[in-house]
């Protein structure tokens, strides 16, 4: 699998990252090397093996449906760059 400049721009866009020309070239090369390295794994035939998403024993950890205290509103908003009227204030979303 080869990584193109277009792939890097696509991923950067999804991650809301603005990259310089220099960075685009740098990451294209780096990502290419990383993927080639991981590609080694596909040399192994895993057609009969279920994907491993966890190595923890397959017991689902549940919690009971009980309400526990939430944060105070001022604490919830404490890290927000902007807040007003109990709400997080963000740049206007235009649809």
């Amino acid at each position: 699998m080869s990584i193109t400049k277009k792939d890097v721009l696509h991923v950067a866009d999804l991650a809301r990252l603005a990259l310089t020309e220099k960075e685009i070239d740098l990451y294209t090369g780096q990502l290419q090397r990383i993927l080639s390295y991981v590609e080694k794994l596909s040399e192994l035939d895993t057609s009969g093996v279920a994907p491993t998403t966890t190595t923890v024993p397959p017991e689902t950890a549940f919690r009971e449906d009980r309400v526990t205290p939430s944060l105070a509103q001022e604490d919830a908003l404490r890290n927000a760059p902007l807040s007003e009227k109990g709400c997080f204030k963000v740049p206007k979303i235009i649809e």
Binding site: R63, V67, T68, L71, A72, Q73, A76, L77, G86
Partner: peptide
């Protein structure tokens, strides 16, 4: 998480980490 699901409360009073 254990935050309440009640409808119509003051904004951001049913939130946690």
């Amino acid at each position: 998480c254990g935050c309440s699901t009640r409808f119509g409360s003051e904004p951001n009073t049913q939130v946690c980490q």
